[in-house]
């Protein structure tokens, strides 16, 4: 049996493959994997301070974090803030993507796209200072998380918008005209044609948005009410005090949690996509 030929790109890059592979592998190991393993490893230590290499092995710091209300409360606050802000971001990001798909003027489309990406370009600190100024003026906001949630939602809207409008642009452009000629009014088209089609993208956008918001610390620094901390804020504060293994234990726990959850999500959606592909293949050959 003949050896299968290498794919075109592999053949094309020839000897430059080796330096490319080395650069990629070095970047991956040094920038991504090693720092993460260091965080994980330091959380095993028996010492009361962060040490590398870890001294001995124990899981006591994990138990400690899970029973410390400072950490568990901030986790709950983060969950609540992220959930509400994600919901808002998904609604407005999806509406924006739907509006984009219905605009015909090239200039209007281009401006709408730019507007929806802009929150990614705005420095969070400067935006946070602005929100902080609003907070000073309107005392009604100071006690609760409203401004924080709204600000986080704004920062996450671009992610939803990008993913959903990519999904919309991949759909057959004749579907909406088809529904219109079949007698459907526009809300029905949105509900029965657009939304079911982009549901996977909406979910992916929501996961993205949730991750961004859950991770975001700058707005919390300026907008969290006194005594209320989000998880990243709690981490930031902990990192600026004496480095306790509590911090790395909490970091490890939250990272593992996210990896397990997202791993499951992508496993399920990957299996679904594979099944859809298999059906399509069968139909094509039938």
């Amino acid at each position: 049996m003949a050896r299968t030929a290498p794919p075109p790109l592999t053949r094309g890059v020839g000897w430059t493959r080796l330096p490319i592979l080395l650069a990629g592998l070095a970047a991956c190991v040094l920038l991504f994997i090693v720092p993460f393993l260091v965080v994980v490893a330091t959380s095993w230590t028996r010492t009361s301070f962060v040490a590398f290499p870890p001294q001995g092995f124990s899981l006591s710091w994990y138990r400690d974090v899970l029973h410390d209300p400072e950490w568990t409360d901030s986790f709950k606050v983060s969950l609540r803030v992220s959930a509400i802000a994600t919901l808002i971001a998904v609604v407005f990001g999806t509406l924006g993507a739907l509006a984009l798909s219905r605009l015909r003027s090239r200039a209007a489309r281009s401006w709408l796209r730019t507007l929806f990406i802009i929150p990614m370009a705005i420095p969070p600190v400067a935006y946070a200072v602005g929100m902080y100024s609003v907070n000073l003026k309107v005392s009604a906001f100071q006690e609760h998380l409203t401004l924080l949630v709204l600000g986080e939602a704004l920062l996450a809207v671009p992610y939803v918008f990008v993913v959903v409008s990519t999904g919309l642009s991949q759909a057959d452009p004749a579907l909406r005209p088809a529904a219109a000629t079949l007698g459907a009014p526009w809300p029905m088209i949105v509900l029965l044609v657009d939304l079911p089609l982009i549901l996977p993208q909406i979910l992916v956008g929501a996961v993205f948005a949730f991750a961004v918001i859950f991770d975001e610390v700058v707005l919390s620094v300026f907008l969290a009410p006194i005594g209320v901390k989000t998880l990243p804020l709690q981490m930031l504060n902990a990192s600026q005090e004496a480095l306790s293994p509590q911090l790395t234990a909490a970091s490890t726990l939250i990272s593992l949690l996210v990896m397990v959850l997202l791993g499951l999500v992508s496993l399920v959606s990957g299996r679904r996509a594979a099944r859809a592909r298999a059906i399509a293949r069968k139909a094509a050959t039938a």
Binding site: D172, A174, L175, P177, A178, A179, A180, T181, L182, G183, A184, P185, L192, V193, P196, L197
Partner: peptide, 21 residues
């Protein structure tokens, strides 16, 4: 009249069948 009130039946080039139904 908008398309939905014209009572026309259209077969599109791509057929435009709703893939999720």
């Amino acid at each position: 009249r908008p398309p939905r009130k014209r009572n026309v039946g259209v077969v599109f080039q791509s057929y435009a069948l709703f893939p999720h139904m």
